[in-house]
């Protein structure tokens, strides 16, 4: 695969080419190539240890790639600090909710807007609380929330970032169907406003209902990508990566 960046006019929001990352003897990313289009919701699936979370960490600036190119909205971000990338308009959630546990729910939302999005932050925090049905617990400590509410709050923080690309790491895993519905509705609403999503998800129902395109990873590489229907037709993928024969 040649490492060729797209022309400025038709740039995807995220462009990853030949990205490598190893930890000791483990090759977590072994030449990852992928793109996420503007306004697209791209799903990332694969077995545990396939490199999905490492890829998120590389894109979000939590890890530095050994080599390769990562462009976000036309900016080279490979190896940049996480806060620099966040300021460019990329936001993420964590697999285990990474809340500001001693702060209130409102405080978490305001803290997310403290850098770069402060104007009108209080009003947006109130709107986000309403959107995610978190108003009754607005003044509770984040650590006092249920697991599902914590997922909601973390999602609320990325909303406060007013990002153009949001990385969601299993945002609906293990949550009550009502909370899942709230999150999915919020994703749909943000998408209408032009936000792009890159989603790690194991819940195939969610993948089918939400994602425009599926990217399958294994052993640190993208092995295939396409529409959900095409992916599930691929019996090898289903058997090997999803553990479910077609």
């Amino acid at each position: 695969m040649t490492a060729q960046a797209p022309a400025p006019g038709d740039q995807p929001i995220l462009f990853v080419r030949d990205v490598h990352k190893h930890f000791g003897g483990i090759q977590a990313a072994a030449g990852v190539d992928l793109e996420v289009g503007r306004g697209e919701i791209a799903g990332l699936i694969g077995p545990n240890g396939s490199g999905k979370s490492t890829l998120f960490n590389l894109v979000a600036g939590m890890e530095t790639p050994d080599r390769g190119q990562i462009l976000f909205d036309g900016h080279e971000i490979g190896g940049k600090k996480a806060y620099t990338i966040a300021r460019l308009g990329l936001a993420r959630t964590f697999q285990i909710p990474a809340l500001f546990e001693n702060m209130t729910v409102s405080g978490n939302l305001l803290a997310a807007a403290a850098e770069g999005h402060w104007h009108g932050a209080q009003q947006r925090a109130d709107e986000t609380l309403a959107l995610l049905h978190l108003e009754p617990v607005a003044n509770n400590r984040a650590s006092d929330l249920s697991g599902g509410q914590q997922k909601l709050l973390e999602f609320g923080r990325v909303i406060m970032r007013q990002a153009s690309l949001i990385l969601l790491d299993e945002v609906t895993a293990g949550v009550h169907p009502n909370i899942r519905k709230i999150i999915l509705e919020a994703i749909a609403r943000l998408r209408e406003q032009g936000t792009s999503f890159f989603v790690i998800e194991h819940d195939m129902e969610m993948v089918r209902n939400v994602c425009d395109r599926i990217i399958v990873m294994d052993s640190g590489r993208v092995v295939t990508s396409g529409a959900f229907e095409d992916i599930v037709q691929n019996s090898e993928v289903m058997q090997t990566y999803l553990g479910r024969p077609q």
Partner: peptide, 12 residues
């Protein structure tokens, strides 16, 4: 409360 999350929110 969570330094990596704070960085992910754009905080230096």
């Amino acid at each position: 409360d969570h330094e990596p999350a704070a960085e992910a929110m754009g905080i230096n």
